[in-house]
């Protein structure tokens, strides 16, 4: 049989070789990818409790008269979405006040029962900034 194989053109040998290569490649992928994915997700926090991801120095908030909140964003946010929620008296996010689009100054009229505000990235489901009064 060895003589027979030696007689074959290398291109022909490759056909059986290809079958072997396919088998080895899929064994490698089948083992390596799940291991990589496991280690990639091992450090993730699935507890659901999130900390603010924004830098506190990015925000300056000040209550004005007539329940008007003045919010200053000092530096651009990394998050693609920033929705401002009023926090109700029970501490839960309630009414949507508006969105932040970039650096600058914003003013929002707060509901009567608001005890603070929360800036949330709706796409990444992350809290960026929270403050209470």
């Amino acid at each position: 049989m060895a003589f027979f194989i030696a007689e074959l053109d290398k291109e022909q040998i490759m056909i059986a070789g290809q079958r072997k290569a396919h088998r080895q490649i899929w064994l490698a992928i089948g083992l390596a990818l799940p291991i990589l994915l496991f280690f990639a997700t091992r450090d993730l926090d699935f507890s659901g409790e999130t900390e603010d991801v924004g830098h506190p120095d990015q925000f300056v908030s000040k209550m004005l008269q007539n329940r008007t909140l003045h919010l200053k964003l000092n530096a651009p946010l990394k998050n693609p979405s920033a929705v401002v929620y009023a926090i109700d008296s029970k501490g839960n996010p309630g009414k949507i006040l508006g969105q932040l689009y970039g650096e600058g100054e914003y003013q929002f009229i707060l509901p009567v029962d608001a005890s603070g505000i929360s800036v949330v990235d709706e796409l990444k489901n992350e809290k960026i900034y929270t403050t209470t009064f």
């Binding site: 396919h22 490649i25 899929w26 992928i29 994915l37 990639a40 997700t41 796409l123 990444k124």
Partner: peptide, 29 residues
């Protein structure tokens, strides 16, 4: 032979795509 070898790179592309989506999804949404 070379053409087939070249096109078997699709398996590497698949592994890269799986990691791209998996990590991207966890990092973004």
């Amino acid at each position: 032979r070379i053409w087939k070898g070249l096109h078997m790179l699709v398996y590497l592309a698949y592994a890269l795509v799986v990691m791209h989506v998996f990590l991207g999804a966890f990092q973004q949404e």
